[in-house]
């Protein structure tokens, strides 16, 4: 039996055998790296793992609060209530998305490969967009708070600038995937740059632009819910106060409010996007 398998292997051409060995080696190295990473990660986890001595009580309190939410908080006479905070959150997301949809257009054309003749131009555009993406919203919010003070306007600006990173990338990709022949036809018939832009490029990319903007709006609504943690307006501020004060019934109603709002927005935006593309 054994000699037979050895013979079979010997029958394979040399380069095939070599490739097989290489492949096994590669799989072995990858497996070793993955195992090492996990060994490192788990060692730290085991060392860190601890449960609060009164975790049982905390879990009970949290569940109790979430099951019995503070319904009175939905609408309160003073206006400092859930409904107003949610509307603020939505307003921040709407304006933030609008700002980024406008701001990202030049970036998108900058980063699109087929809009510039030289490769390094679109390359730097792509790099700038990914650098914007890494800057977390919360940090941007803090920067803008330094400029315009606490309040929703700082949140709007933070969202507006942060979203440029992702929207610019998506818009740029849709410009890259565009059909260029209408543009050439227009240039051939003597249209100027503005006319080619308006009649050949805009009609092609507009539905995708709108669809991506709506998608980004969904993401921004979620992001706007936490901006208040640093004081940039919206539902985040009452949320962090309730969390710090361990008023779990308040946390419960805010959680329900966020879930309902995000679900409704996702549903509406999804329905519109389906019709667009």
């Amino acid at each position: 039996m054994r000699t037979e398998t050895v013979n079979k292997k010997a029958l394979l051409p040399k380069d095939v055998r070599k490739r097989l060995i290489w492949r096994r080696l590669k799989i072995g190295v990858i497996a070793a790296v993955v195992i090492l990473i996990y060994a490192w990660a788990f060692r730290g986890f085991v060392k860190d793992f601890k449960i609060n001595p009164n975790a049982g009580q905390s879990i009970k309190a949290i569940f109790n609060g979430i099951i019995h939410p503070d319904w009175d908080y939905i609408v309160e006479p003073g206006g400092e209530d859930l409904l107003h905070a949610l509307i603020d959150t939505l307003a921040i997301a709407v304006l933030g998305t609008f700002i980024s949809a406008v701001l990202c257009i030049p970036f998108a054309f900058w980063a699109a490969r087929n809009m510039s003749r030289r490769r390094w131009i679109s390359g730097t555009g792509k790099f700038v967009l990914s650098a914007i993406r890494v800057f977390p919203e919360l940090i941007m919010a803090i920067l803008f708070i330094a400029a315009v003070g606490l309040g929703p306007f700082a949140g709007i600006l933070a969202l507006g600038f942060h979203s440029v990173g992702m929207l610019g990338k998506l818009f740029g990709e849709s410009i890259e995937n565009m059909d260029l022949s209408p543009r050439e036809a227009l240039i051939a018939s003597g249209a100027n740059r503005l006319q080619t832009l308006w009649f050949a490029i805009v009609p092609q990319v507009l539905p995708e632009f709108m669809s991506y903007t709506l998608y980004r709006f969904e993401v921004s609504v979620r992001a706007a819910t936490i901006l208040g943690i640093v004081g940039a307006g919206g539902i985040g501020a009452p949320l962090i106060f309730a969390l710090q004060g361990h008023t779990w019934d308040r946390v419960g109603i805010i959680l329900i409010g966020i879930i309902v709002m995000v679900t409704i927005i996702d549903y509406i935006s999804g329905a519109i996007r389906k019709r667009l593309v």
Binding site: G44, K50, N52, I62, A223, T225, I226, H246, T263
Partner: peptide, 23 residues
């Protein structure tokens, strides 16, 4: 439902259970 909850809020709910730290 899970996807609507922001991760920072999830973390804030887990901190009282596991204490301050990476867990």
């Amino acid at each position: 439902l899970i996807r609507t909850i922001p991760e920072l809020l999830l973390a804030a709910l887990f901190v009282p259970i596991f204490g301050i730290g990476p867990v």
